[in-house]
Measured scan of single mutants.
Amino acid sequence: DVEPGKFYKGVVTRIEKYGAFINLNEQVRGLLRPRDMISLRAENLNVGDEIIVQAIDVRPEKREIDFKYIP
């Protein structure tokens, strides 16, 4: 289970104008929005990159997770 405030290692699987999709594993995926990329620009991300993200909002009923990148 993903808990708000905890840090996780994930892999960038898709990049859109509104953010990057980060997979923690095959069943868990969330969104890293540009406003939550402190000191990281979306254009510096590539599909396949491994990054550490913090879960900031977890909505299990919608199967949605928002992440924040903190260097």
Score class of each variant (00 low, 15 high):
D1T: 14
D1S: 14
D1N: 13
D1Q: 13
V2C: 06
V2N: 04
V2K: 03
E3N: 07
E3W: 09
P4I: 15
P4N: 08
P4K: 15
P4Q: 10
P4G: 05
P4M: 12
G5A: 02
G5C: 12
K6N: 08
K6C: 12
K6S: 06
K6T: 06
K6I: 07
K6M: 09
K6D: 03
F7L: 07
Y8P: 01
K9V: 12
K9A: 06
K9Q: 08
K9L: 11
G10N: 00
G10Y: 01
G10V: 09
V11K: 09
V11S: 02
V11T: 11
V11C: 08
V11Y: 10
V11I: 14
V12G: 00
V12D: 00
V12F: 01
V12E: 00
I15R: 02
I15P: 00
E16G: 14
K17F: 11
K17R: 13
Y18N: 07
Y18I: 11
G19K: 07
G19N: 03
G19T: 08
G19R: 07
F21I: 14
F21K: 01
I22W: 01
I22K: 00
I22Q: 00
N23A: 15
N23M: 14
N23R: 12
L24Y: 01
L24G: 00
L24A: 01
L24F: 05
N25L: 08
N25C: 12
N25A: 08
E26L: 11
E26H: 13
E26S: 14
Q27P: 04
Q27I: 12
Q27G: 12
Q27K: 14
V28R: 02
V28A: 04
V28C: 08
R29Q: 14
G30L: 06
G30K: 02
G30R: 02
L31N: 04
L32T: 02
L32C: 06
L32A: 02
L32Y: 03
R33S: 07
R33W: 07
R33P: 05
P34I: 15
P34M: 13
P34N: 15
P34Y: 15
R35F: 06
R35G: 12
R35M: 09
R35K: 14
R35E: 12
D36P: 02
M37Q: 05
M37V: 07
M37A: 06
I38P: 10
L40W: 07
R41F: 10
R41Q: 13
A42V: 15
A42F: 15
E43A: 13
E43V: 12
E43M: 12
N44C: 15
N44A: 13
L45I: 12
L45A: 01
L45Y: 04
L45R: 02
N46C: 15
N46F: 10
N46M: 13
N46S: 14
N46H: 15
N46L: 10
G48C: 06
G48S: 01
G48V: 00
G48L: 02
G48H: 01
D49L: 08
D49Q: 10
D49A: 06
E50C: 15
E50V: 15
I51D: 00
I51W: 01
I52V: 13
I52L: 10
I52F: 08
I52Q: 04
Q54S: 03
Q54G: 02
Q54V: 10
A55E: 02
A55S: 02
A55L: 09
A55G: 02
I56E: 03
D57G: 14
D57I: 10
V58C: 09
V58A: 04
V58K: 03
R59N: 07
R59T: 04
R59W: 06
R59E: 03
R59I: 04
P60S: 09
P60Y: 09
K62C: 11
K62T: 11
K62L: 13
R63T: 07
R63K: 14
R63L: 10
R63I: 06
R63E: 09
I65V: 09
I65E: 03
D66H: 10
D66P: 01
D66E: 08
F67G: 03
F67S: 02
K68A: 15
K68I: 11
K68L: 11
K68G: 11
K68E: 05
K68M: 12
Y69H: 06
Y69M: 07
Y69P: 03
Y69D: 04
I70N: 09
I70C: 09
I70K: 06
P71D: 12
P71T: 11
P71A: 14
